[in-house]
Simulated assay, not measured.
Amino acid sequence: MRVLAAMSGGVDSAVAAARAVEAGHDVTGVHLALSKNPQTYRTGARGCCTIEDSRDARRAADVIGIPFYVWDMAERFHEDVVEDFYAEYANGRTPNPCLRCNEKIKFAAVLDRAVALGFDAVATGHYARKGEDGLLRRGVDPGKDQSYVLAVLTPAQLAHSLFPLGDTPKDLVRAEAEERGLAVARKPDSHDICFIADGDTSGFLKNRLGSKDGEIVDSATGEVLGSHDGSHQFTVGQRHGLGLKRPAADGRPRYVLSITPVDNRVEVGPREALRVDRIRTGRPVWLAAERTGDFDAQVQLRAHGEVYPAVVTADAHGLTAVLRKPAYGVAPGQALVVYDPDAEHGDAVLASGTIDTADAAAPVEAAGV
């Protein structure tokens, strides 16, 4: 096959490209330029698309012996990822920009261009697998599994995707990179949001969304406990950085329970008030055969987060998941990813949806979960 290897400049995508070559594919490497102003990128290996990363990707392609190009995706990235990030926070939601980048850039814009140029597939360094049935499955390294952030892919996109690292633990990938002579073998993993140069998310949002004085209030009594200069600086479940005037009467910490952008109001309360066991999403993306009605499943609410047995109801409006055990601090805007609970296919992704609401409901008993 003709394969386009997306090379971020990290160890994972470099080894993935090398494995694609070793598998006999005709491979071309590409690095995505995502910033309109590259000089604003942070230095060092804290992000996933810095100037240094571009140079590292080119050097890796030279060692592997494949053609290498840089594609300018800055405008598309800004529109589909950065602007979405602003809009979600402005509406009191907490987005996952890496998930949005996979959905809109790496497996939409890039894949569309790749297919138009005659490539058969795009290979990435994600830790996930494709089963013989074509379904997306967890990577074998549970600490690195990235099926959650890939669950936004459509079946058609998944059919044109390759994940060469899904069957390998991360430490063995690094060892392989050293054996192949790749200079990125010991390069640290990226963790920060790549388009926030200094890692200051609050400051980044304030620069765009501005400042507006608002109140932080006790959810139970309505008492004003503090003030802030923009509700977009908070997320549901947040504990630190609240700047409250005095501690709770019982001495326990307070958490953000809700955000109301219309009146710039942030409500706080005890951890118990964060308990949810019913989660609703908008229209889902189905990676497996679409289902209707109730079915048993396992759901994940955060990347690398806990997995919850649940009863999921699918209808024309979206998904409703009733958890068999409560979760805490679930924020609208995050993704709910549904996995098959069957023992044989328990790591297969069925669907995903963006969370609209999360609240407490009576637990539902369901056999087989």
Rank of each mutant, 00 (worst) to 15 (best):
R2I: 11
A5L: 10
M7K: 06
G10Q: 09
V15M: 06
A17M: 13
A18N: 13
R19M: 04
V21T: 01
G24L: 11
V27G: 09
T28D: 00
G29P: 01
H31I: 00
L32W: 01
K36D: 14
T40L: 15
T40M: 14
R42A: 15
G44M: 11
A45W: 15
C49W: 11
A57M: 03
A57D: 07
R59H: 10
R59Q: 11
A61E: 02
D72P: 12
M73W: 09
M73S: 09
F77S: 11
H78S: 10
H78G: 02
V81Q: 11
V81A: 11
V82D: 00
F85M: 02
G92L: 13
R93Y: 09
T94C: 15
N96E: 13
L99P: 00
R100V: 15
C101T: 15
I105N: 03
I105D: 08
F107I: 03
V110Q: 14
D112A: 15
A114M: 07
A121C: 12
G131N: 01
L135P: 01
G139M: 05
P142R: 08
P142K: 06
P142Q: 07
G143D: 09
K144E: 09
V149S: 14
L150I: 10
L153I: 00
Q157K: 03
S161C: 14
F163P: 03
F163T: 12
P164Q: 08
K170N: 12
E178H: 08
R180F: 07
L182G: 06
A183R: 08
V184F: 03
R186V: 07
P188H: 05
S190L: 06
D192H: 12
D192L: 07
G199Y: 09
D200F: 04
N207S: 14
G214R: 04
G214S: 12
D218F: 02
S219H: 14
V224P: 01
L225P: 07
L225A: 08
H232K: 03
G237P: 08
H240A: 15
G241V: 02
G241Y: 05
K245M: 12
P247K: 03
P253K: 01
L257H: 14
T260C: 08
T260Y: 10
T260L: 12
R265W: 04
P270V: 10
E272L: 15
R280Q: 14
L287M: 11
A289T: 14
A289S: 11
T292K: 11
D294W: 05
D296V: 02
A303T: 05
A303C: 05
V307R: 01
V311Q: 15
T320H: 07
V322A: 14
L323N: 04
L323K: 02
G329I: 04
A331M: 08
Y339Q: 02
Y339E: 00
A343E: 00
D347Q: 13
A351V: 04
A351I: 01
A351F: 02
A351W: 00
G353H: 09
T357I: 07
A367W: 09
